[in-house]
């Protein structure tokens, strides 16, 4: 087992509630992500965020991204005493958004310039990422000229260039074949491990894929009354620490029986939500 310790809190969801027209959507959601410190290698954080459809994942996703304000509570990052602001947490939606009127290079320069004012340094950083993600020859193309995978990588680079090491990915495994699913998992690991502070939250329905890339899993659901009817307002009902269970950072972990057992356990809990 790899030796590790937990450092400071990087992201904190602090008693977040959300109501629409008096109807509770999120109720006292509390969670946090701590810096995982491994002395011998760079180790970022990956959290799998699971929950059934319509449970309010997207709403919490938008609040964490600073795009929506909660009714009460707040999300903070890096120990700052203020709510997260849009732009501090990168967002890669399911359709891999990019500006259609800009080329790949222009899209990335736009993001790089938001943090790095020196044009030459910003360009060097963009070229470095394009090389790293095998996209350098696509720099002059427009987003519609890219394949789905290239577009996804480009959207990820754009958000990393601009955010504070945080990246929210909405359904990155949706509709992918086995090969692409493996590539996307590798990509998530690669991005997470580019910097100790890199923190990725993967919102998904795919329990196996989420467990394979994550060090922690958040399971979102609703409480039930005595008759078994769901009560309004979702929250994180379960948190799984995969490091503690020695289920992460192992190549080919998904073939291990204990991983299969773990996924079964999560699936059973998922069904009860």
């Amino acid at each position: 087992m790899v030796s590790y310790t937990y450092g400071k809190t990087l992201l904190k969801v602090d008693d977040v509630s959300l109501e629409y027209d008096g109807r509770p959507i999120l109720k006292h959601v509390t969670a946090e992500i701590k810096d995982i410190i491994c002395t011998d290698h760079v180790q970022g954080q990956v959290v799998g965020f699971l929950g059934p459809s319509g449970i309010g994942k997207t709403q919490l996703f938008r609040i964490i991204a600073g795009l929506n304000k909660p009714t009460s509570g707040r999300v903070t990052i890096n120990g700052l005493d203020r709510p997260v602001q849009a732009g501090e947490v990168g967002v890669v939606s399911q359709d891999y958004p990019l500006f259609a009127h800009r080329t790949v290079m222009s899209n990335l320069m736009l993001a790089a310039n938001q943090k790095e004012k020196d044009e030459r340094t910003a360009r060097a950083k963009v070229v470095q990422y394009l090389t790293e993600f095998d996209l350098l020859d696509k720099a002059s193309l427009y987003p519609v000229q890219l394949s789905g995978g290239q577009r996804q990588r480009c959207a990820i680079i754009q958000q990393i260039l601009c955010s504070e090491h945080f990246l929210l990915m909405d359904e990155p495994f949706s509709g992918l074949d086995l090969l692409m699913l493996e590539k996307t998992s590798e990509l998530i690991q690669k991005v997470a491990n580019m910097d100790d502070l890199n923190t990725i939250i993967v919102v998904t329905h795919d329990i196996t894929a989420a467990a394979a890339v994550s060090d922690h899993l958040w399971l979102m659901g609703r409480d039930h009354d005595a008759k078994g009817n769901p009560l309004p307002g979702s929250h994180i009902v379960e948190t799984y620490d995969l490091i503690e269970r020695d289920l992460c950072w192992h190549p080919q972990i998904i073939t291990q029986p204990r991983f299969v057992d773990f996924v079964r356990e999560v699936k059973e809990r998922f069904r009860s939500l």
Partner: peptide, 20 residues
């Protein structure tokens, strides 16, 4: 809405969002 959100996630203020 997604296009506005993209601009906001790139730290643009609302006037810059309008321009972009």
């Amino acid at each position: 809405k997604g296009e506005f959100d993209l601009a906001r996630t790139l730290r643009m203020n609302e006037w810059r969002v309008v321009y972009e």
